[in-house]
Write a protein that binds this DNA or RNA. Structure first.
Lengths: 344, 344
DNA sequence: CGAATACATGAATTCGTTTTCTGAACAAAA
DNA sequence: TTTTGTTCAGAAAACGAATTCATGTATTCG
């Protein structure tokens, strides 16, 4: 009644064991080194190795995971991997993961609440060993609840520091915008400043605007209502807003734009309208995407170094995975840097 | 001897069953709809549902995978997710995967042979349900061997069409380069053309150069040795090569560049050197990355629509996953499009 | 020489599901 | 009343590894 190659499923440890003339646990022990304290004779070790090679055996990660309760997988949720801000994060996370011999499951939330929740559900069901997320809609409470249920470390990149049970890399863009606006005022001598923001429903929107307003208020400068505008995130959006400004006249002498894509759109639109940047209007972006060095004039912008953020996120995560009883919660500020180029 | 909440592990089906006063398989049947032909009474169905809700039960995907031999996961290997050509592919694959309720494991090969092999090993060990790869070094033979062992569909994006057991999306960049060179010659009247290539060790290198050479030969045009140059993939590399050309003098009137990043670098360098593009030198790139619309003059380039490729790859893969006995192998050509902008 | 100690291995259990395979209860047909 | 179906649900066996427990040999010690 010997089952001869039932189907042609991949070989299992039993197959290896049978060929080597040993028992299945012995094979397991040989393959996992002697992490268990049981010694193995060189003789069997050799026989097993030969059988493994002969059959081309590969351990089944699913079975192993079921038994060990570890998947050697981390999950990463970001808004959109094809966005210049996010893919360096993904890349960095993958690089760190490779060092730890982990695989990375990546999911795009597209700023959609349901997708963010869905991601957490997946994290729970699949038993990944850790998760990195860039949540927009998930509340602190929800996140915390998921992290507690999952019994695994969560690390977030975000605008809140008050997640009770997880490390966070804190995006302090309010401060960055504040200080950069100050710089435009005190170092560059601008006093009629404008601002193009992103939709207020997303955290970066109000935060960056707040930084701008605070700097203006502290300098006792008034902001003309015409000079506070809102775009979407796109280059086209930036163009449209800028064209509308030109149409209406009454331009500011400096313009803070809440992301580079719109800033570049604005530059292109202003130049097409015959204005000189930065002489007629100075422009500062936010993000320092690669395109910023390509547009002419090159874009002065606030750089956040997403690759470094990704590294921070991943390192924090793996530290916790390796050492699950780290108790104190960590908050990493994200250093920003004003990259001074030609546009301001 | 009732185990009361042993640790606080997440609840299992047994826990749900106990609470609902039914057996564990019954819970399974309720949760999986009646895909099995066993009917369930509304009464038990309700009891189970309540128990599930009360415990916040979530099925354990690992255990399910072990039993069903499916992981609801596909793996994607590309060279570098933070490269403008690749991330739209990743994005497209993820989008299609979401429709099928699959997760995506993404890995960067960085054009490194060991990483490509490692990826295939991972695919085998983790029992993913399908794999999409953009191999550079893996030979047809190796790939085919892996696919056979894995018993799952492989789909590749690449320069060969001769993979016996898998669908392939074929990058016919030789033809694209050939036809575009023809266009420069016949439509634009250039006869002194140059070429900046990528390292020949990678498949696109020789293929694209071959297309260029073929078009030149067929037009009976000679290529001056000074006009065939090689860069790396980077913007800086493009700059350097262009600067060297300027230094040496004897410029061609049109320049085919094997990727956009280098083409953009070349444009920037030529303009910095006081040359007019396209009047003094016309430039055509390859890839149509977003930056191509931002540089001035905007870049004429060969567009390959990576997002669409990603969709093709993913759709082909999922068709096979859903229908494992598709026998005929499919080859999809990738349509290319010459995006005529200002630089040529 | 008997007992204690390594040393090396196999048997049995477990991880949490899905999927047979059985069987009980009850209704409808003979 | 007996037979034949239906309708439901539990018992048991996978899936492929890791791990605990038990056991059988050599080896060493008193």
């Amino acid at each position: 009644m010997s089952k001869i190659q039932q189907r042609n499923r991949p070989p299992t440890m039993h197959d290896v064991a049978r060929l080597a003339g040993v028992s299945q646990p012995t094979v397991s022990r040989v393959l996992n080194g002697n992490n268990t304290q049981v010694p193995i004779s060189d003789d069997t070790r050799l026989k097993v190795q030969q059988a493994v090679d002969a059959l081309g055996y590969r351990p089944n990660a699913v079975a192993r995971s079921l038994r060990t309760q570890r998947t050697q997988t981390v999950a990463l949720m970001l808004a959109d991997i094809s966005n210049s801000f996010y893919h360096p994060i993904a890349r960095a996370v993958q690089d760190v993961a490779r060092q730890y011999d982990y695989e990375v499951l990546i999911s795009n939330s597209d700023h959609i609440y349901e997708y963010e929740k869905h991601f957490c559900e997946i994290v729970l069901r699949r038993g990944v060993d850790g998760a990195i997320l860039v949540p927009i809609h998930l509340t602190t409470k929800e996140l915390d609840a998921y992290a507690l249920q999952a019994h695994i470390p969560f690390v977030v990149l975000g605008h809140h520091v008050d997640h009770p049970n997880m490390d966070v890399v804190f995006l302090d863009d309010e401060r960055a915008t504040y200080e950069t606006t100050q710089w435009l005022i005190t170092e560059r001598g601008h006093y009629r400043l404008g601002y193009i923001g992103v939709p207020a429903v997303l955290p970066p929107g109000p935060r960056r605007l707040r930084g701008f307003n605070r700097a203006m208020a502290e300098a006792n400068l008034e902001v003309h209502p015409d000079h506070i505008l809102q775009g979407d995130f796109t280059l086209e959006g930036g163009k449209r807003v800028a064209q509308a400004m030109v149409q209406r006249g009454n331009l500011p002498t400096a313009l803070m734009v809440a992301n580079d894509l719109m800033a570049i759109g604005a530059i292109l639109a202003f130049r097409d309208a015959g204005l000189r940047v930065p002489e007629d209007i100075a422009i500062v972006g936010f993000d320092n995407i690669p395109e910023a060095t390509i547009v002419r004039p090159t874009l002065t912008t606030i750089a956040q170094n997403p690759h470094e953020m990704g590294e921070r996120l991943a390192c924090a995560l793996f530290e916790r995975i390796e050492n699950p009883d780290i108790t104190e919660r960590r908050v990493f500020g994200t250093p920003y840097e004003l990259i001074k180029r030609e546009s301001a």
